[in-house]
Design a protein around this nucleic acid. Structure first.
Lengths: 231, 231
DNA sequence: GTCTATATGGGGATAGAC
DNA sequence: GTCTATCCCCATATAGAC
């Protein structure tokens, strides 16, 4: 009952075993509530191994995130590039912009299939559990990629004020991040009517919902907004 | 630096002091990472008082949630009722349905103004940090209210398949819950361009985005969906 | 690199005096 | 109802033998 469903292969070396196990546990139980004892026992390595290889528990988390995020962002870049090529000088349609942004996120994980969306759930949990920490991760790994996609959105929706682009991209990101940790709630509240295991359906619905959201009329500009630093 | 900005009034009795302080700390630092020692010190009550009055740390959390959620849901009910009255036999417009659902959530908190959205942030954190626990809270407090609003949405969008109604309501709920804990990210990523403190602007943008999202075309119905239990 | 043993500090809960 | 003192659990991290 305490075991992971898919046991970590013995062939892997210590570092890989730790990383893989930690991802599973952080995704399923959260960072603070997962102890190094639990990780090392599950990974069948020594308790001291985490501190030896990664310096600290947070060091392990940082490495884990880096390992997943870097290739994910490369995928995003190349997908957006491909869509740009398809559309030559035309702006990339918004649906495609978000496809390039979302799909690599949902496809991230151990090669061979991360069917449970462990990385996604971990990200979703962390952004609520350690918002300060995630902001630093964000600064390190997402600044450039976000700028790329914000620009693509601006091209697709040239009439939208920059402030609104940020708001709506923020909504999109929030939805994407929370979609995994909140799935169980949908299953219950829909009395099982919604196929929450259908990742493809989730992605399509997310993209459709987000793109439609971008069609919403601009919020009333009140006095507060006037003092913005709009260049 | 360790003190809460607004100190708990001495006049309050022990239970109230504990509840108020706990809300602040759970919202700001999360449930697991907030100790009873921290709460009781900040509230200037005895360490044993929490267990005496609430049985356990989780008992305290349950009471705290109950205290906020019950009146919030009453507000939702009465607002939806008022909109129904305004529209006599016509369905309530979707914008109004979500206004009745969202506004009491953002208006929940200590009377006199919960300007920092403590209750909201607490809810957002908890639903990521303790999803299992929140599902039980959900079952206890949200079943009826959700049914009420799902029905109102069905009336406003009679052509939408029930499955899609659940999906989109789920997206709306997810956005609402996460909007507070994720605000800081928007502030950073927009380089301060977005007025994230402007709750009214946030509510308007949320409603607009969600209602527009409900206009999205229905996702392709693949083979998996066919086996649904659509009554 | 790996292990055991331990240092050091924190947590929730409770017994029992007042 | 309130307090102190304490039980017993668990955590992260590290020192030092192998």
């Amino acid at each position: 009952m305490n075991n992971l469903s898919k046991t970590v292969p013995i062939k892997m070396d210590t570092q890989e075993r730790i990383l893989e196990t930690a991802e599973q546990l952080f995704a399923r139980r959260g960072f603070e509530t997962t102890s190094l004892r639990h990780i090392t026992k599950e990974a069948r390595v020594n308790l001291a191994a985490v501190n030896y290889h990664f310096g600290s528990k947070e060091g392990l988390l940082k490495e884990l995130l880096r390992m997943r995020i870097v290739p994910m962002n490369e995928k995003r870049r190349s997908m957006l590039e491909a869509f740009r090529f398809q559309n030559s000088t035309q702006p990339v349609p918004l649906e495609n912009v978000f496809e390039a942004f979302l799909r690599p996120f949902f496809g991230t994980g151990s090669p061979g299939g991360d069917s449970e969306g462990l990385f996604l759930r971990m990200m979703g949990r962390l952004s609520a559990e350690k918002p300060g920490f995630m902001e630093s991760i964000y600064q390190e790994h997402f600044r450039d990629i976000q700028e790329l996609f914000i620009n693509a959105i601006k091209e697709a929706r040239p009439n939208l004020r920059e402030e609104e682009v940020f708001w709506r991209f923020h909504f999109a990101l929030t939805l994407m991040l929370s979609s995994m940790t909140q799935r169980q709630r949908l299953k219950i509240s829909s009395h099982g009517r919604c196929q929450t295991d259908d990742i493809e359906g989730l992605i399509e619905r997310l993209i459709a919902f987000i793109c439609a959201g971008f069609q919403s009329p601009v919020a009333s500009e009140n006095s507060v907004a006037a003092m913005g630093v709009l260049s």
